[in-house]
Every structure is written in structure tokens, then in C-alpha cells.
Amino acid sequence: MPPMGHKYGAVAVERDGMRFDSKLEAAYYDHIKILVTDGEVVGFLRQVPFHLPGNARYVCDFQVFWRDGPAG
């Protein structure tokens, strides 16, 4: 049986020595880097785990820290 592809047809890519699960995720990384250079974002983290009730765990792609505080 041939190996299964990604459920949504995403193609993994590499940027700055890091692997991203999709071209869209890598493009967002590129966008955040520009925002850091422009001073709108002070920093960001990748693949941040959140431990939720019921022994559930959610891993977000990016946690972004904006210069003006939380977006809302």
C-alpha cells in the first residue's frame, strides 16, 4: 500500500533550517519575520503547546508578541 499523503494535500517546506508542515505556514513565518523587522512584533514562538482540560493538548503554529500588546 502506498504511503498516505497529507489530509489536505499540504507540502512540507524548509525555511532558515526549520521544517514547516505547509507552504502556508512557511509563508506566515516569512510574514512574521517582516513584522519583527518593521518593529510591529517584538517576538514570536513556534509550535507552542497548550495543555487543556481533559488531558488534551493543542499545539499552535505561532504565538506572536505584538509591540502594542495583545491583539483584540
Score class of each variant (00 low, 15 high):
G72Q: 13
E40S: 12
V41F: 02
I34R: 15
V48M: 12
V64H: 02
A71H: 11
A12W: 07
Y28P: 08
A27R: 15
V13C: 06
K33L: 10
A71N: 10
S22Q: 03
F20E: 00
K33F: 05
A26Q: 07
Y8K: 13
M4N: 15
V41R: 05
V36W: 03
P2M: 11
Y29L: 03
R67I: 08
A26D: 03
N55Y: 02
A26M: 03
F65C: 05
V42S: 06
D16I: 06
G9Q: 01
C60Y: 04
Y8S: 12
N55I: 00
P53T: 01
R67H: 06
W66T: 08
D68C: 11
Y28L: 14
E14A: 10
M18F: 13
Y28E: 12
V41T: 04
K33D: 09
Q47K: 05
F44G: 01
D68M: 09
H51D: 13
A71C: 11
G43R: 07
I32W: 02
Y29T: 07
V59H: 02
Y28T: 11
V64Y: 02
L52T: 00
E40F: 10
P2Q: 14
F62C: 01
Q63V: 13
R15W: 03
R57V: 08
Y8R: 14
K23H: 12
V36Q: 05
A56W: 00
M18E: 15
T37Q: 15
Y28G: 10
P49R: 07
R19G: 10
P70A: 09
P49Q: 06
M18P: 08
K23M: 13
Q47G: 06
F62K: 02
Q47S: 08
Y58G: 03
F20I: 00
A10Y: 09
G54I: 00
E14G: 08
K33C: 14
G72H: 11
